[in-house]
Amino acid sequence: MVDLAADWKSVSDRFHCTAGQVLGKYEFSTAQSMILTITTDACKGLENQVNYLEHVQSFVTLKSSRRGDVTLFLVSPMNTTSMILSKRPKDTESVDGFNKWPFMTTHMWAENARGTWKLVVVFDSEAPQQGVLFEWTLMLHGTQLSPYVGQKVNVTKRHPKLGVVKREHEEGVNFQFQQ
């Protein structure tokens, strides 16, 4: 980060795009994890189009037998996986759950948001647990102009992700999650 900061230039204006929403009653348990998907064009063609991500939010509504054992992973179209909720041993809540709770990650910075996103819901528990997810809304925050304009990108082993993402945008390569 220090190497990159020496020559860093500010990025352009930030835009917000509601990429999609999943509504319903989706059950999950310690025996059966769950993967939900949202396919998005990142508001392509609209004034709030997002071409390069800065951060991503997942607003989640769910209830479970033990909230502290629920873990959430967000997987981008480029297959970047970010744990957006980890196990919390002291969180024994079983009534309120999460109500439109905003989870955020910056792990997908500068990636192309277009494609299929995955929300992976898992119980991290040896005891039997069960839950229901009612809502997942995906919100994209980013820029329309490349954050690489004027940036020196060193694609050595010290900064490989920045180089891969820059190349993906320049060449139009579309990476997909492998199941």
Rank of each mutant, 00 (worst) to 15 (best):
T80Q: 05
M139C: 13
W136D: 02
R167T: 14
W117T: 00
G150C: 05
V164T: 11
W101S: 10
W136G: 00
A113E: 02
T156W: 10
G131R: 02
H107L: 15
W117Y: 06
E111W: 02
V132F: 09
R67H: 09
V122P: 07
S64G: 07
G131V: 00
L140D: 00
L138P: 01
Q144S: 06
Q130W: 13
P77T: 00
K90T: 15
F73K: 12
M108V: 01
E111Q: 07
V164K: 11
V60E: 03
T143S: 09
E93F: 11
F73A: 12
W109Y: 15
P160M: 01
L74V: 07
F134I: 07
T71K: 06
A110N: 12
M108P: 04
W101D: 09
Q151T: 06
N99W: 13
W136A: 01
G163H: 01
E168G: 12
L162Y: 10
V56N: 05
E111T: 00
L72W: 02
T81G: 00
R67L: 11
V95M: 14
V121A: 04
D91Q: 10
T61Y: 06
T116I: 02
P77L: 06
S65V: 01
W101A: 15
K152M: 11
K166L: 14
M104N: 13
T80D: 05
T61Q: 07
S76I: 03
W109G: 11
L62K: 05
N79E: 06
V132C: 06
P102D: 05
F98T: 03
W117Q: 00
K152V: 10
M104T: 15
M78N: 13
E93T: 09
T80K: 06
V153F: 04
G115W: 07
D124A: 09
R114N: 08
P128S: 13
V165E: 05
S86N: 15
V121P: 06
N154Q: 06
V165G: 07
V155A: 15
G142K: 00
T81Y: 01
N79W: 07
V122G: 11
M104R: 10
A127Y: 10
T105Y: 04
V132L: 01
T106S: 13
G68L: 00
R88S: 09
V75Q: 01
V60W: 06
D91I: 05
V70D: 00
Q130Y: 15
S86Y: 14
L85R: 14
H159E: 08
H169P: 04
L145A: 12
L145E: 13
L62H: 06
K100N: 14
E111H: 01
